[in-house]
Amino acid sequence: MTSKLTGTVALVTGASSGIGTATARQLAEQGASVALVARRKDRLDDLAAEITAAGGTALAVEADITDSAQAAAAVQQTVEHFGRLDILVNNAGLMLLGPVVGADPTEWERMIAVNVQGLLHTTHAALPHLLKAAEEGPRRVADIVNISSIAGREAWNGYGVYNLTKFGVNGFTESLRKEITQRHVRVGVLEPGGVATELASHNDHKPDIREATATFYEQTEVLQPEDIADGVAYMVTRPRHASIGELWIMPTDQA
């Protein structure tokens, strides 16, 4: 039986944990060959072996996408290995919370580098290949899914620069959607609420924030990475004539 994504190639950033890992598994189950991109090569190798053992196809690509040359090389390695690129999932993200007053600007720079510049680097490198795939079989359509956040829809005290990056992702996604979707490269944004991933642990060195996030996760039945992976799979498996521009997935307790 042919799966919906048989014959296609997907690249997932931030594939070494959480939403990225779950998305890579889901796309492989749907028949896509998957390039796993992140910095933690050991985890990528383990995931690639798992996908292969389950009958899928995966390639581990170690790269720091905040470096434009490494992001471009990751895309090029994917295309050279698999021969094409049909789906890009920009998932890599960093969340460092706290007030703007008295903040450490290096934390802002790190978030902007991962959440914004990394997404731009991979998208820029991938676009020529996605446009080409949209003109060819097997589907004659290609997809970009940018993983944003509810923090791209609503701003909160203490989330200032994280909000900035996610509002920026939403704005960039909408502009790019208007630029290229009629060329059958669909561009969509997926905005999760609370998900059980490593994201909150990025603030473990800040006791007040660690306590607040721990309380939220204790009191909320949060989403699992697989819930978001299901959303990504839904977006990229729509028929050619249907484009999902925005998908907002929230824990019922948080909605």
Score class of each variant (00 low, 15 high):
25 R>W: 12
76 Q>K: 15
253 D>E: 06
64 D>V: 13
243 S>T: 15
52 T>E: 12
44 L>D: 10
190 L>I: 02
4 K>G: 11
67 D>M: 04
243 S>C: 15
182 Q>I: 14
252 T>M: 08
215 T>R: 10
80 E>V: 06
223 L>Q: 05
12 V>G: 14
32 A>S: 11
149 S>M: 09
189 V>W: 08
41 K>P: 12
19 I>N: 09
159 Y>C: 12
69 A>W: 03
130 L>M: 05
106 T>S: 11
73 A>L: 04
129 H>P: 07
187 V>A: 00
69 A>G: 00
17 S>V: 06
155 A>H: 01
153 R>Y: 13
216 F>D: 06
173 T>V: 02
83 G>L: 05
206 K>P: 09
155 A>F: 07
149 S>F: 02
192 P>V: 02
200 A>H: 04
28 A>T: 11
219 Q>W: 01
187 V>P: 05
126 A>K: 04
69 A>T: 11
49 A>E: 13
42 D>T: 15
124 H>C: 11
165 T>S: 12
234 Y>R: 04
249 I>R: 01
78 T>L: 01
248 W>T: 15
222 V>D: 07
79 V>G: 04
91 N>A: 03
64 D>L: 08
54 A>W: 08
183 R>S: 15
108 W>E: 10
204 D>G: 13
7 G>L: 01
186 R>S: 13
65 I>L: 05
77 Q>P: 08
59 L>V: 13
29 E>S: 15
11 L>K: 00
15 A>L: 08
76 Q>D: 15
21 T>L: 00
111 M>H: 10
34 V>C: 08
13 T>D: 04
188 G>R: 05
185 V>A: 09
114 V>I: 14
165 T>N: 02
6 T>F: 03
41 K>F: 14
24 A>Y: 10
229 A>N: 10
130 L>K: 09
48 A>C: 01
124 H>Q: 14
61 V>K: 06
